[in-house]
């Protein structure tokens, strides 16, 4: 199922398809490891609904939904027991 990262549900593991947005934003995201093919897991949403915390490349990252909406993903089935957290 193709969608964007801001719509992914907490606990779901997704695969990055494309990073959009202006070059500054894209580069920033990509240098943090959000590149095509990377696996990302949505950990939690902040109390006020934004930003979201994700796990990528074994570490945790908070990004705003506005930026998450620029990241195209395909959603895998939820994998409750496969924690990718390195910490």
């Amino acid at each position: 199922m193709e969608t964007t990262l801001d719509k992914a549900q907490v606990g779901h593991e997704v695969k990055i398809q494309k990073v959009g947005g202006s070059s500054a934003i894209r580069l920033r995201l990509m240098h943090m490891g959000i590149v095509k093919g990377a696996t990302v897991r949505v950990e939690r949403v902040a109390p006020l609904g934004d930003p979201v915390e994700i796990t990528v490349r074994g570490y945790q990252l908070a990004i705003r939904k506005k930026e998450a909406a620029l990241i195209e993903i395909t959603e895998n089935e939820p994998q409750q027991h496969e924690h990718t957290r390195a910490q």
Binding site: I25, R28, M32, Y59, L61, A62, E67
Partner: peptide
Amino acid sequence: GEQTPFVMEMPP
């Protein structure tokens, strides 16, 4: 200028 994307590591 564009608001810089808020991309913040949540360190352990």
